[in-house]
C-alpha cells in the first residue's frame, strides 16, 4: 500500500530524514517510536503532502504510484489521512461545516454525489456518539477552545467520517486520559480492515496494548535503526533508546 524508499528530507537546509525506508502492506498496522526531534512528525507531514520540506532523495509510492508531486488534497482524496499531533484551530469555520466540506470533496473526487446537510449530520452524529464526544462540538468553531483531548478525539472523528485506507496517527494518544485512550483506540480498531493500513506514531507502549501493531520501528535521527514485532515496544519501554544510538 505505502512504500517509502530511501527518503532524504531537509528543512531550512537541515537534514531531518536521512534515508528512511519503510513498507506498509494492506491491512497492516505499523508503529513508529523514537526520541523527541527524531523526525517522526516530519515523516508524517511529508506523507500528507506538506510543502515546507525539500526532498533531496528517495520516493514515496502509494498503491504502486509515486505521490511525490501530489498536492495534499489529492493525497487525501486517494485515501491518505494524517491525524495531526497539533490540530489547527480555525475560528469562524464550524466543525460540522468543515467535516461536510471535506467528506464531499473526497466524494466528489470519486464521482459520488455530495451529501446534503441532513444526511451528513446523521452520519456525524452516529460517529460522534461512538467516540463519546459531546454533540455540541459539531457546531463549534473547528478545534477552537477544544481541550487537548477533545482535539485528539476530533481527529479520530474526522478519520472515521472520511474513512481513509492509509491512516497516520501522530501521537494521537498524547494528552488523552485513560478512558479517552480506550475510546480512541476502539475508534481506530473499528476502522481496521483487510484493506486498511495504519502508521501509529507514539511515545507510549500503552496505546499498543489497545491498537496491536504488526510491526514496531525505531526512528532515531532520521533513520529507522531497528524493526521488530510488538515486543520491541515493551523492550523500549524498559530500556529507553540509548542502547540503539551509536
Amino acid at each position: 500500500m505505502l512504500e517509502i524508499i530511501d527518503l532524504h528530507a531537509n528543512i531550512e537546509d537541515k537534514e531531518i530524514l536521512k534515508g528512511l525506508t519503510l513498507k506498509i502492506n494492506k491491512g497492516e498496522v505499523h508503529s513508529i517510536m523514537g526520541p523527541n526531534g527524531s523526525g517522526k512528525s516530519t515523516l508524517a507531514s511529508i506523507l500528507a503532502g506538506k510543502e515546507d520540506y525539500e526532498i533531496t532523495k528517495g520516493d514515496i509510492l502509494f498503491n504502486g504510484e509515486s505521490i511525490m508531486e501530489m498536492a495534499p488534497e489529492e493525497r487525501a482524496q486517494e485515501g491518505i489521512f494524517l491525524a495531526f499531533q497539533y490540530p489547527i484551530e480555525i475560528p469562524g469555520v464550524t466543525n460540522s461545516y468543515f467535516l461536510r466540506e471535506a467528506l464531499n470533496s473526497i466524494r466528489k473526487s470519486k464521482g459520488d454525489k455530495p451529501l446534503k446537510p441532513v444526511e451528513f449530520v446523521k452520519i456525524a452524529k452516529e460517529k460522534i456518539k461512538d467516540l463519546k464526544m459531546d454533540e455540541s462540538l459539531l457546531n463549534r468553531s473547528l478545534n477552537e477552545g477544544f481541550s487537548g483531548g477533545e482535539k485528539k478525539r476530533n481527529e479520530i472523528l474526522q478519520m472515521s467520517i472520511l474513512n481513509p485506507c492509509m491512516s497516520i496517527l501522530d501521537e494521537t494518544d498524547s494528552g488523552l486520559d485513560i478512558d479517552a485512550l480506550q475510546i480512541v483506540a476502539n475508534g481506530v480498531n473499528a476502522n481496521r480492515g483487510d484493506d486498511k493500513s495504519f502508521l501509529v506514531i507514539t511515545h507510549y507502549q500503552r496505546l499498543l496494548n489497545y491498537i496491536v501493531p504488526d510491526f514496531v520501528h525505531v526512528l532515531i535521527e532520521g533513520r529507522i535503526v531497528k524493526s521488530g514485532d510488538k515486543s520491541l515496544a515493551l523492550e523500549l519501554e524498559s530500556k529507553g533508546y540509548s542502547w540503539l544510538e551509536n
Binding site: 495534499p72 487525501a76 494524517l82 480555525i90 469562524g92 466540506e101
Partner: peptide, 25 residues
C-alpha cells in the same frame, strides 16, 4: 490552516474561500 483543510481533501481554491469566509464570520 490552509494545509490542514487541504490535508482533509479540500481543494486549494475551496480552502482559501473557507478561510476568507471565516474571516468575516
Amino acid at each position: 490552516a490552509l494545509y490542514y483543510l487541504r490535508a482533509r481533501g479540500i481543494n486549494l481554491e475551496d480552502a482559501k474561500l473557507i478561510m476568507i469566509r471565516s474571516f468575516t464570520e
